[in-house]
Design a binder for these strands. Sequence first.
DNA 1: TTTAACTTTCAGTAATTATTGAAAATACGA
DNA 2: TCGTATTTTCAATAATTACTGAAAGTTAAA
Lengths: 174, 174
Amino acid sequence: MATKQQARLQAAKDEFVTQWGAIGNSWGVNRTMAQIHALLMVTPDPMSTDQVMEELKISRGNANMNLRELVGWGLIRSIVRKGERKEFFEAEKDVWKIFCIVTRERKRREIDPVQDVLHRCQDQTAGLKGTEAETFQKQIKELSDFVATTSRIMDKVASSQQSKIVPLASKLFK
Amino acid sequence: MATKQQARLQAAKDEFVTQWGAIGNSWGVNRTMAQIHALLMVTPDPMSTDQVMEELKISRGNANMNLRELVGWGLIRSIVRKGERKEFFEAEKDVWKIFCIVTRERKRREIDPVQDVLHRCQDQTAGLKGTEAETFQKQIKELSDFVATTSRIMDKVASSQQSKIVPLASKLFK
DNA sequence: TTTAACTTTCAGTAATTATTGAAAATACGA
DNA sequence: TCGTATTTTCAATAATTACTGAAAGTTAAA
């Protein structure tokens, strides 16, 4: 009986890890990174590099690189147990914290560069006269204003307490 | 003089198109698609496939495919002028509308699949007992609840009038 | 019809991105 | 310090994704 239940649990975990990897792709993170993250999110104890390699059937280089990257994002952290040479990893499990980290990263990768290019375009065309130029300036300005607002909202959301924002959002958008 | 100003404007447009393409990548849309979109956003008159090919130095197949895709998203529309065989394209220029389209598309591609997989995992493990199973269920449930809220917010935002949401958001997140 | 302007498709190829595996580097305990 | 367990790096390769160009398909005017 216990075996059968464990098999069902294992199957669910496997599906979660596999699918999270696939979804990761559409979020612009590579499959392996997303899979490692998923695996650590549903594994109660910290895992070593070798355990991750074994579980996901990936090479040492791949495991190492993506574990580092996840540590860099702050989505997992490394654990050193006294008396053990090996390093272990555990995931941040608090969903709101995960969300804040991902939001900050996406802002950095997806919003900031847009803002930069829009500002450069505004500077480059400042003072130009004529219908063509004015059409361009108007469009860029509208984009720019909108992106600036988006940017501020993301900063604000990603740095607030869940207890403050979620009830507010739920009320607003119910 | 006029020539010099036009050169500056052209340079700014080129930079905008090029960079928008690069940024598109980090948003998960291919470079060409993003470049065509950028080009049409800053071109007052509708453009033909040949003009787009010429401007971006891309093949007919590439131009056609990405123009279709953009039409599919609703980010550009096709124009037929009477007496002309050729089809022309113009971009949606209203920034809020663009935002709504992109938000809906991103929800469809990035949020809905996550919700599906989380629900399947919940179903598969419903009723399982034991610490391991309960830890898994708890984590999945927290993710699931959070994603459900996100999903509702995106639906709501993407279907509202800018005039209603933006002032509200600005006030909340100032 | 026929013709020609225009659009679509798609097999082949190019460009990009991800992964491996083994060698080099590092760091810990004796 | 040395020996070894562990981590990191990176050139080679595999997998994926994007693009081309030419041929096939479509449509509208003559």
